[in-house]
Design a protein around this nucleic acid. Sequence first.
DNA 1: GAGTATGTTATATG
DNA 2: GCATATAACATACT
Length: 265
Amino acid sequence: MPELPEVEIVRRRMHEAMACRRIGQVTVHDEAILEGISSTAIVLKLKGRSVEEVLRRGKQLMCVLDDRSVLAVHLGMTGDVQVHDHPLEHRHLRFSMKISNGTWVHFIDQRKFGAVGHYMSQEALLAAKRLGPDALAISEKEFSGRVSSHRKAIKTTLLDQSVLAGVGNLYSDEMLFQCRIHPETKADSLSSRQLKCLHCAMLDILQRSIENGSDFELLDNKYLLHDRRSGSKCPRCASVWTTVSVNGRTSFICPRCQKVASPRS
DNA sequence: GAGTATGTTATATG
DNA sequence: GCATATAACATACT
């Protein structure tokens, strides 16, 4: 589930549940999801602290505590955070916190690519993870500058969280489709018009997805994500989607609308 | 069994 | 050391 819009939805849920409240009991159900810290150590860091706010940079969630340190939560491929008024029995439950108003915040993650950690400050976290500017906050000028400074494929560049943070496999496909750019086009060969189009398409699809609760069925059918399945068709020219592997990730493209723009050298 | 999955990162290569 | 490419991580499903 989680690219920027899904993570933003989780952030709002966590902020609502935790902001201006105190963390009580902390339970690590599976130590494998902790990054660089032991169960006992993270419990000591969190228990009794109050949460000031829950922030997000790209796909990284950050609970800012009253000592300025940060509880970092990353959803990985299959992570989710649920708020309940009770403890939870769940096969994939990895981490839980009881909050001072009596609710519980539960981190669930089937595949365990997600992570929970603790950092001395937001800056320490952002530096350690080498996260670029957030995709919703980056200006067109900065987007164009950063993206076009790489010579690898545009798709790979958009997925590189140190270039900009938040875009994943599905949303990058959408942006490239909207702008009719082939995912293997070299990033540094894009025109300023194409870069501008990508920035615009990025904001559009990310914002729309947040508003829709990231339910792709609610998107207009001009979007690839509305029906991103093999066998279905490009809404512009009715060609059947093709898939191509870029950087080891499956990419959906329209074979007619998204031609390879740069000759391979 | 093979292939695939919305993410990140360690390791290899040039 | 840097930019880029690829494998690996854990688990479930088709």
